[in-house]
Design a protein around this nucleic acid. Structure first.
Lengths: 260, 260
DNA sequence: ACCTGAACACCGTTCAAGT
DNA sequence: ACCTGAACACCGTTCAAGT
């Protein structure tokens, strides 16, 4: 147990010498992200941030208007710049692949922010329009039609966010120990007759497949799955591109046939 | 503002006549889900559940050991039975499609639970092994090789969970009004020269595309995107299946060629 | 302008006590 | 067995006051 008190903030600087030249929005955000990295999101509090900075909790409000606004800034900082350098139009697959990898790397560096990525308001506010613009540019250049642009765009964003959220959310130093046992036992005591495939595949699935997980930490199998997942989606998108081009060609031939 | 007090629980039954024949785990979970449906997840508290049931907050602990355990039960109840009826092996695409639609429908009925789906521990604990088993059976029957089963499985789970989490999370009666303004303004004041594609596509994107959203509520464009997304992934998976079958056939021919 | 300090209205959870 | 009742150690946020 740590000593926590509501009284005067500690005047002794903790390690990184807080409050040396006063607070700033930057330093508040930095401290918040550091706390989430260290102790997880579940136990995150503004009061802890204040304690870490050696100030009263209410001092935070001079720099951010609410907890949510602070969290938006934290995610923005954690994600960093996601937009890859421009590539020739034909290399749209490579460009998207790099975008996905950049996003995953960012979350891998700050896995405890993952539970926040599911929360739309916070997630939306922390993504910058430049990224949206760049995705649209890439997709249009690749040849996707304006009418279906929105659906392809939505697919791209889900692919970027969905897997990684699931991969990293709910880990960290939080309280996982109790759940670890419960979940592990649930799968250990599984009936072989009722769940033949699941029990047979337990060695290759446990802690390497979604749902069948109870331990945190990074995991090579999931990284592989992520790459495979990306390839599946890009294959699917390319197939659509080809199909569209063909129907277009066909309809051009038909209409020119009619006109003669 | 509602009247909230820490004193004695209200004895007057609220609407649905709470406490008629005593509490039960079932009734606690039901009340919790009803509260989340009505007021959103952000403001959810055990104490509110107790108030709704007309008991002291601590009475809840006779039926669940913690807030997290209650939330797991809530998700389990909200998701319901996801496993589709068995289909012939060749119809694996239809089976998966129905699984995805069942999941989406469940979350659509209880959109306020969406932020919880990102949190692994809760999400994992609320999904039953029967679903995992059924997915494995379908994928193996479809012809996916045991070595890559885990990656295809992980892809399937992400597709099921990822899009819908993003689609519904962060909505409901919560506190969205303040953010609504902030986000709307951000996109309204966007520079046309710096973001030509985004500004040009605002009419078809605003509140219908991920990130470029500020209003809650269900949305037809996103449902369409979901269906397109599913098709893209299924196309990608089928392509892999075909590619695998071909390399296998080729290697069989080669080896038989060598043996003769 | 920037922070203190007190206060308000909440939380989840523990534990002893009642019936 | 099931719930009350008090208590503990927290929260986010508002607002007046200090410097």
């Amino acid at each position: 147990m740590e000593e926590k008190n509501d009284a005067a903030p500690e005047k002794k600087r903790r390690g990184r010498s807080a409050r040396d030249q006063g607070l700033s929005r930057e330093r508040v955000v930095e401290a918040a992200l550091a706390l989430i990295d260290a102790k997880g999101y579940a136990s995150f509090s503004l009061r802890d941030v204040a304690r870490e900075l050696g100030v009263y909790p209410t001092a935070i409000y001079w720099y951010v208007t609410s907890r949510d606004e602070l969290l938006v800034e934290v995610i923005t900082r954690a994600l960093g710049d996601l937009v890859p350098l421009p590539l020739p139009a034909k290399r749209w697959r490579d460009w998207l692949k790099e975008l996905f990898h950049r996003y995953r790397s960012a979350v891998e560096r700050h896995p405890n922010v993952a539970p926040l990525l599911g929360s739309q308001i916070i997630s939306n506010a922390s993504m910058n329009p430049a990224m949206v613009e760049a995705v649209l540019r890439t997709l249009l250049a690749a040849g996707f039609k304006p009418e279906e642009l929105i659906h392809v765009y939505n697919t791209v964003i889900t692919v970027m966010v969905g897997f990684v959220t699931l991969e990293f959310a709910g880990h960290g130093a939080d309280q996982r120990d109790e759940w670890e046992q419960t979940l592990r036992m649930r799968y250990e005591e599984l009936d072989h007759d009722a769940f033949p495939l699941l029990t047979a595949n337990m060695p290759r699935m446990s802690n390497q497949a979604f749902i069948v997980r109870w331990k945190g930490g990074t995991n090579r199998a999931l990284k592989q799955s992520f790459d495979r997942y990306i390839d599946v989606v890009l294959d699917g998108l390319q197939r659509q591109l080809v199909a569209d081009a063909e129907t277009e060609k066909r309809s051009r031939i038909e209409s020119s046939g009619r006109s003669h």
